[in-house]
């Protein structure tokens, strides 16, 4: 449906999906000079249970309908979120899943990339809190929808200064692993 690139970040409440959406929107709209709209499911749903944030990106003009209609790329960090939200992924779209969390991989006319995102955050960086940042690195590289530079600026503008290095590393892991995934 035209000049729209649609992303959905899903997981459970507390995994930073909304922050991931905000950072993606800022990377696109503030640092890459595109147009972006970010929205989220709000309320009880965001406290535990499946949670989602959506970002629509356009190269130009106004984005009218703010919700996802045909998703170009979706992230799922939990099985529940994956099962609940994958239905809108479009043909030839991308589904990125946490390989430890999502075992029941939905079938469809889209590409599935699978990576142990949370385990990598825990094992390599000692902080599962950066799972969302690793995810952003993966998505930036897999989709090419925002530049690495814009993504890094957007992440660093949103995280406390004391955690700059940690988040840079997390992002870099995402970029690197996505290149490997694409190569496979």
């Amino acid at each position: 449906m035209g000049d729209r690139y649609e992303l959905r970040f899903s997981g459970s409440g507390g995994q930073g999906m909304i922050l991931a959406g905000i950072v993606m929107a800022e990377a696109a709209a503030i640092y890459d000079n595109k147009v972006a709209v970010q929205s989220q499911s709000y309320g009880p749903e965001s406290r535990g249970g499946a949670s989602k944030a959506e970002v629509i990106i356009s190269d130009s003009g106004t984005i009218d309908y703010p919700k996802a209609t045909a998703i170009d790329c979706m992230l799922a960090l939990t099985q529940e979120a994956c099962t609940k939200y994958h239905g809108d992924i479009k043909k030839d779209g991308i589904l990125l899943i946490d390989s430890d969390e999502v075992k029941d991989i939905p079938e469809g006319d889209f590409k599935v990339y699978s990576f142990p995102i949370i385990e990598t955050a825990r094992g390599e960086l000692g902080k599962i809190i950066v799972s969302n940042i690793i995810s952003l690195g993966l998505i930036a590289e897999l989709t090419g929808i925002v530049s690495h530079g814009a993504m890094e600026k957007a992440v660093l503008a949103r995280v406390p200064v004391a955690f700059t290095e940690l988040n840079k590393k997390a992002l870099q892991i995402g970029f690197d692993k996505a290149r490997e995934l694409k190569g496979n």
Partner: peptide, 10 residues
Amino acid sequence: DEIIGHMREV
């Protein structure tokens, strides 16, 4: 409404 109240745009 809640949609525009809570969504983000530049």
